[in-house]
């Protein structure tokens, strides 16, 4: 049996909007993945430490407060520094269109905005975070 994909779902920074992250955590779990939700107000360092400790394949970041340009790339940078750059990072939330290419350039594999279906996100993790590491 193929090993289950492990995903860490996290809320970086101070943003308290947790509707989306919880809905997605549940959808990934229902799709057969192992989901670790670390809760609110996690620093990029906290998130990376948890990801390494939990040996995850991917991290899903959620921010609706506008801090994504600072916090999302920082998670990718710290992962690289900790030699965990193979962990796939995706992000979602209230993200203006012109920020999407910048985030991808900063190393996010996927960026999702409002209106994305749960299936698209499930497919993304299945495709990009399958156990090959």
């Amino acid at each position: 049996m193929a090993k289950k994909i492990r995903v860490l779902m996290a809320k970086p920074g101070l943003d308290g909007h947790d509707r989306g992250v919880k809905v997605i955590a549940r959808a990934l779990r229902d799709a057969g993945m192992e989901v670790i939700y670390t809760g609110l107000r996690q620093s990029p360092d906290d998130i990376v430490a948890a990801a390494i400790e939990e040996d995850v394949d991917a991290i899903g970041l959620s921010s609706l407060s506008g801090a994504h340009m600072t916090l999302f790339p920082k998670v990718v940078q710290i992962l690289k520094k900790k030699k965990a750059g193979d962990i796939v990072v995706a992000g979602g939330g209230i993200i203006p269109p012109e920020d999407v290419p910048k985030l991808k350039k900063a190393g996010l594999k996927g960026v999702f905005g409002p209106g994305t279906t749960l299936q698209e996100i499930v497919d993304f993790f299945q495709k990009n975070a399958g156990r090959s590491r």
Binding site: G13, L14, D15, L64, S65, G66, A67, M69, T70, L71
Partner: peptide, 10 residues
Amino acid sequence: AEAEGEFGTC
């Protein structure tokens, strides 16, 4: 330090 990246955004 906790306020990093969040000044005036929302």
